[in-house]
Design a protein around this nucleic acid. Structure first.
Length: 491
RNA sequence: CGGGGUGUAGCGCAGCCCGGUUAGCGCACCUGGUUUGGGACCAGGGGGUCGCAGGUUCGAAUCCUGCUACCCCGACCA
């Protein structure tokens, strides 16, 4: 069988790039660093959005929309925030074009220079807190629990489809609270929402943790994250939730009158996940034959491939499978009947495997005679022939089982690829020969973190929330440490 | 932004070093026929300002200059 994509073992990077393109998820646009998300890829993103949006609403949030442009002065209000984003901003300086003097094309009209430049949002804390100032006077106005689905721009030097693009789609939650406790609680609640989504929908096991000082979000007091492990042993941050303290409230002068009549600054959080999750989904489960999608996010859960020689045969098969298709749809299973007469069955098998459809049902003349259907599962590539009347029930069970199987496969992989080390030599050896997560003691200083990063390219992915208290010595400095933290090379 | 590489049909490439008919090949595409339970076969056909702009030359895909985009390795990052 001709392979559509290179093997992971040969070139993991190339495998990923080719898979994204061949599975029709996305492609490079002619705009630097920007991608076109194609219909099949976008429909997976829509499934993610639907699930997340429901979870946000269930936790009391509502959606709103704020401007794409942020005045330069807004971004500058919070010192570490602007420092963090300054190097990757797209800036609007003019608002008009005119015909070029040589008659060829158009040019920027120098007369149209803006008084104040506008930044294309790299994130929306500043523009949103500027609004919150107008909305909040009293404790009665709190909390504000808002989410926004939007695009943002970060002018990255090197881009990769879904993992890092100059423009990407995401959601950003921005909340305002009367107390620090409430804001911290919100920060952790949303971290849990992300972890649940990753594990239950994406079938992606994640580790919840807190970022080190060096890795936290510019403008945050604390950054929490979920970290996942990809098949090549590199880590990928799948979502972040920030406790902003009163930083943005102070920067935008957002004060409220408490019950006791005292003025205080508002406490904030922000949290987000992006189309980067698509990259995580692809890299976590897929194989050398193509995508492997968890049933709960697959745009097509079941594809039916009829095998036929003539129009009459096809019609006979249609008559036979239509009740099954109706039955599955009634159970909210997304089914596609691939009755194209322009491609042979073998082609269709390969194509739907490349696209990661979890279950395939094949029905041909043989089955018609025997009253059977062949059921194929994408994750293990196992086939079985079932009695027609049994198929609907079995497929429902199978979809659940595939969801669980790929989760456990990823979890087993992560367990195997997580190593405890106690010396720096061990640390470097594991990193070079095995990769994956490394649990090691760290003295808690940014200096040590930086040095380890310089020497090994590994970073502290997070300080796990559920790490055991354990006395030890920093693998780098030998100074005392109270718990192990999670290191890895990362995307 | 530093180092290296590549832009030739929708995709993947050859041709370039050493300038010279009508710029080739595979896949894909279109037409007809035979096929159809793991990526079909035969026959015919269409499609290219050779990344862009200059320059050298009787003549440029090929040589020179500038620009631009993308890929790989660094630095930065979700």
């Amino acid at each position: 069988m001709a392979k559509a994509i290179p093997a992971r073992s040969e070139d993991y990077s190339l495998w990923y790039n080719e898979l994204v393109k061949k599975a029709d998820l996305a492609e490079h646009s002619d705009v630097r660093g920007c991608m076109v998300i194609k219909p099949y890829g976008y429909s997976i993103w829509e499934k993610m959005q639907q699930a997340l949006d429901k979870m946000f609403k269930e936790t009391g949030h509502t959606n709103a929309y704020f401007p794409l442009f942020v005045p330069k002065s807004f971004l500058a209000r919070e010192a570490s925030h602007v420092e963090g984003f300054a190097k990757e901003c797209a800036i609007v300086t003019h608002y008009r074009l005119k015909n070029a003097p040589d008659g060829k094309g158009v040019m920027v009209d120098p007369e149209s220079k803006l008084e104040e430049e506008l930044i294309v949002r790299p994130t929306s804390e500043t523009i949103i807190w500027n609004s919150y100032k107008k909305w909040i006077q009293s404790y009665r106005d709190l909390p504000i629990l808002i989410n926004q689905w939007a695009n943002v721009v970060r002018w990255e030097m090197r881009t990769r489809l879904f993992l890092r693009t100059a423009e990407f789609l995401w959601q950003e939650g921005h909340t305002a609270h009367a107390t620090a406790e409430e804001a911290v609680e919100e920060t952790l609640r949303m971290l849990d929402v992300y972890a649940n989504f990753a594990e239950n929908y994406m079938a992606l096991p994640v580790i919840k943790g807190r970022k080190s000082e060096g890795e936290k979000f510019p403008g945050a007091v604390d950054t929490y994250c979920i970290e996942a492990l990809m098949q090549d042993g590199k880590a990928l941050q799948a979502g972040t939730s920030h406790f902003l303290g009163q930083n943005f409230a102070k920067a935008f002068d957002v004060q409220f009158a408490s019950k006791e009549g005292k003025l205080d600054y508002v406490w904030g959080t922000s949290w987000g996940v992006s189309t980067r999750l698509m990259g995580a989904l692809i890299m976590a489960h897929s194989d050398d034959d193509g995508l492997v999608l968890p049933p709960r996010l697959a745009p097509i859960q079941v594809v039916v491939v009829p095998v036929f020689k003539s129009e009459e045969e096809l019609n006979a098969i249609r008559g036979s499978v239509q009740p099954l298709i109706n039955d599955l749809r009634k159970q909210h299973v997304t089914v596609k009947l691939d009755d194209r007469d322009t491609h042979k069955p073998g082609f269709k098998f390969a194509e739907w495997e490349l696209k990661g459809v979890p279950v395939r049902i094949t029905i041909g003349p043989r089955d018609l005679e025997n009253g059977t259907a062949e059921v194929f599962r994408r994750d293990t590539k196992e086939k079985q022939t079932l009695k027609m009347e049994q198929v609907a029930v079995d497929v429902l069970v199978l979809l659940d089982e595939i969801q669980k199987t790929i989760y456990h496969k990823a979890l087993d992989f992560r367990s195997t690829m997580t190593t405890q080390v106690n010396t720096f030599d061990e640390f470097k050896q594991v990193l070079e020969e095995k990769g994956g997560f490394i649990e090691a003691h760290w003295d808690g200083t940014t200096e040590t973190e930086e040095k380890i990063k310089e020497e090994t390219k590994a970073t502290i992915r997070c300080i796990p929330l559920h790490a055991r208290e354990e006395q030890g010595m920093c693998v780098y400095s030998g100074r005392p440490s109270g718990r192990r933290v999670l290191f890895a090379r990362a995307y």
